[in-house]
Structure formats: structure tokens, C-alpha cells
Simulated assay, not measured.
Amino acid sequence: MALDHSDRLNSLGFAKPPAETRVVVAMSGGVDSSVVAAMLAEEGYDVVGVTLQLYDHGAALAKKGACCAGLDIHDARRVAEEMNFPHYVLDYENIFKDAVIDEFADSYLAGATPVPCIRCNERVKFKDLLETARDLDADCMATGHYIQRKMGPHGAELHCAADAARDQSYFLFSTTQAQLDFLRFPLGHLPSKDATRALAAKYGLSVADKPDSQDICFVPNGNYAAVIEKLRPGAADPGEIVHADGRVLGQHEGVIHYTIGQRRGLGIGGLEEPLYVVKLDVENRRVIVGPKDMLATRTVPVREINWLGDEPLGARKEWQVAVKVRSTRPPRDAVIRPRADGTAEVELLTAEEGVSPGQACVFYDSDGSRILGGGWIWRG
């Protein structure tokens, strides 16, 4: 006679034993996703590891410190062997180029400052890979992201990680409700990265001491301009550095070398006042500079909004929230005013500096814990 497990949920939230619960783990080859896979395997789940090959394998093999490279595929496979669960490598190179790399290059050429990691989560990992997990008859998909999924009165909610220093909510704002229902984030409650490494050591994983990746995976050494010049020959055409008052202060070697808010490396020394990049005029190949107070912004237009609130975004004329306009900044008090066309205007109660088109504006509840979604900053 079969046992009735309906009154008991397992650690992933299903009313059946772990052995009958299939979970696909997105494995980058790093310590975080490796610990997730090992933890779930040890708990007795039916774990299937999947690693994505996202860009040129030959070039990747020589490059350490970035996710999804050749060395990382090898590391993910080793963890699967150590913990005795199946592991697959999927070639997503074309999907990744079309969905992430090309837009990254075009955004930079348009004077924006893109965040490709968000697009990768949105268009590759939580879209195509998630569909692959469903095709494999998985009950859910788990990742090594530092974020928490909690059950609320209206269903699954997205909350910040317990460790604020590791929180990845800024990069996951575009996770939809349907995706959130299928996803699990087993590391979000951990107090620190040291706790993750301690688990890796406990499971005897070969990646326990592997360093964290720092760069965007397809941008070696953080050299964006070199990647864009390779993808878009002629992208680094020279032009003028112009003061906001109209004075030509110097020459530059391509707008793609500059970002909004940049102060160092402008090549226009000898001036009395410190100057910052306040605008990129791509059409005229001009870098506009000015004093710091020109960077202050209170009105932020956003589009491509993903909303995770309990009520529809358009149910109210205004929402009192907190927002992040950069991943490294704490949430600040703001008001969202939805528009009929699906965009919104965000008013920051305190002006922020360096708000840049192409970055994300992520919405949080007033105490900064729950993620209510977000959108992409544009010029308006």
C-alpha cells in the first residue's frame, strides 16, 4: 500500500519523497551551483546537472575566472561524477550570441550601459534552459543564485538573500511569476559565502576553493571595448570630448570607451573643476562632460517592466516602493507611476547620480526585502 505523503512537503516544496522529485540543477562549474547539486543529491533527490556552453569553447579553455568556460564545464562534470548523478552539456552558443552578446554590443554602440547577466538569466537560463528542464520531466529547476523564494498568501514571492553582500536580486528582477513557480534557490538563506564553501568542503567537492568569477563571461579582463570592436568593426571611431557649455576639451578614441558618471581616464587633465561623463552623443561621436551636479537625476523612465506584486501594476496610480538603479547601491525610496502604454515613470525621492540608459531599475517593497520586479532605464 502506497504511503500518503500529501500532508508533508519535502525541502523543495513537493508532497512526495525526494527520490520521486526530479530537479534539474543549472551548473556553471563554480562552487555555488556545485554545492546546490551536491546538497540535493545528498538529500536523495533525483538530480540532473545541466551546464550550458555559451561561447567559443577553444577561447574559453584558456580563460579562468568566468562562468561556463571550458574549464568550468570540466569542473561541473567532475562534481556530477563525485556525487553520482547524470550531467549534460548543452550547446547554447547561437542562442547566447543572438539573445545576449549582440544586444550587449548594440547597446554600447547606442551609448547605453547594458547588464548582460540579466539578459542571460531572462532569455537563456530561465527561458530555454527552464524549458529543457520541463522536457526532462523535472519538477523544478534549482540554481546557485543568492536570492530567496518564499511562499506568500498569493503564491511564490522573490526576496533578497539573507547575506546582503551576496544578494543577486538586481540581476533577477525579470524573473516572471511562472518561472518563479518552477525555480528553487537553495543558497538564498545562507549567512555568507563562507557557509557555502564550508558545505563544498563537507561534500568533498573538488571546486571547494575555486575563486569566484568576476568578469562577464564573454568579456576577458573586463575589457568591453575590445570585445565590441571585435563584434562591430569600426565601433571605436574617434570624436570630440565636449563640455556641457559647448567647449571642445579634447579628442577620444571611441564613445564605447566611456560610461555615464565616469571621471577617471578622460584624458582632459589640467582643468580646475573635476569633470564627469554626463551624456554620450553617439550620433555625433561626442562625449559630453560636466560638473558632478549634472549627474543628479530624480526622474527615471522605465520600460519592459516585469511586475511581481500581488495586485496588477496598473491597479494604482502610484506605488510607494524602494528602487535600485545600480547593482551596488542600496534601495532608495521612490514612487512608481504606471503609464497606459506599459511603461512607467519612477520618481526618486532623493536624487541619484549616474543613472544610465541600459541599466535596470529594480523595485522592492518599502522595507527593501521583497522584489516587486523592475524595468529597463531608457531615455524617455
Results as ranks from 00 to 15, higher is better:
Asp106Cys: 07
Ala208His: 12
Gln168Asp: 09
Leu180Gly: 09
Leu231Glu: 12
Arg149His: 03
Glu122Leu: 09
Lys193Asp: 07
Asp209Thr: 13
Phe126His: 14
Lys97Pro: 00
Leu183Glu: 00
Ala162Gly: 03
Val227Asp: 05
Thr143Phe: 05
Pro186Trp: 00
Glu122Thr: 12
Thr196Arg: 00
Ala142Gln: 04
Tyr224Asp: 15
Gly222Met: 11
Phe185Tyr: 05
Arg134Pro: 10
Gly222Val: 10
Asp139Gly: 09
Leu187Asp: 03
Ile147Val: 15
His159Tyr: 09
Gln148Met: 09
His154Lys: 13
Ile216Gly: 04
Val100Cys: 10
Ala105Trp: 05
Ser192His: 07
Ala162Ile: 00
Ala201Trp: 00
Glu229Leu: 06
Pro153Phe: 00
Ser213Arg: 13
Arg134Ile: 10
Ala198Ile: 02
Ala162Thr: 14
Lys150Gly: 02
Thr143Tyr: 03
Pro233Asp: 12
Tyr170Phe: 15
Ala133Gly: 08
Gly144Arg: 05
Tyr203Asp: 04
Lys202Phe: 08
Leu158Gln: 04
Lys127Asp: 15
Val115Lys: 05
Asp128Gly: 01
Ala112Gln: 15
Val100His: 05
Arg134Phe: 02
Ser206His: 15
Ala164Cys: 00
Gly188Lys: 02
Leu199Val: 00
Leu205His: 02
Val115Pro: 08
Leu190Ala: 02
His159Pro: 02
Ala165Glu: 13
His154Tyr: 03
Phe171Gly: 09
Lys97Glu: 14
Glu103Met: 11
Leu231Trp: 12
Gly144Glu: 04
Leu231Tyr: 13
Leu130Thr: 10
Lys125Cys: 09
Gly152Leu: 04
Gly222Ile: 10
Asp181Gln: 11
Arg184Tyr: 03
Ser206Gly: 01
Met151Tyr: 06
Val207Arg: 06
Ala110Cys: 10
Thr196Ile: 15
Ala161Phe: 00
Lys210Asp: 03
Gln177Glu: 12
Ala138Trp: 01
Phe173Gln: 02
Thr113Trp: 00
Leu109Asp: 09
Gln168Gly: 07
Asp212Gly: 14
Pro220Ile: 13
Glu131Thr: 14
Pro211Val: 09
Arg197Leu: 05
Tyr203Lys: 11
Gly188Glu: 06
Arg119Val: 06
Gln148Pro: 04
Cys140Trp: 01
Ser169His: 03
Ala112Ser: 12
Glu229His: 05
Leu231Asp: 03
Ser174Leu: 03
Tyr224Asn: 14
Gln179Ser: 13
Ser169Cys: 08
Leu158Asp: 01
Asp128Trp: 15
Leu199Thr: 00
Ala225Ile: 09
Asp137Val: 04
Leu109Asn: 12
Ser169Asp: 02
Ala198Thr: 11
Asp98Asn: 11
His154Gln: 09
Lys127Thr: 15
Ala201Ile: 08
Asp106Gly: 09
Ala156Gly: 05
Lys193Asn: 12
Leu205Ala: 04
Lys127Trp: 04
Ala110Ile: 01
Gly222Cys: 12
Leu187Pro: 04
Arg134Met: 08
Arg184Val: 06
Cys117Gln: 11
Lys125Pro: 08
Leu205Lys: 07
Leu136Ser: 07
Ala164Val: 10
Thr175Ile: 07
Leu136Trp: 14
Leu158Lys: 01
Leu158Val: 02
Asp98His: 12
Gly234Met: 08
Phe171Lys: 08
Lys202Ala: 06
Leu183Asn: 06
Lys193Thr: 02
Ile147Thr: 09
Ala226Val: 09
Ser192Glu: 03
Asp212Thr: 14
Cys117Tyr: 03
Arg119Gln: 12
Arg123Met: 13
Lys193His: 10
Gln179Glu: 14
Thr113Ala: 07
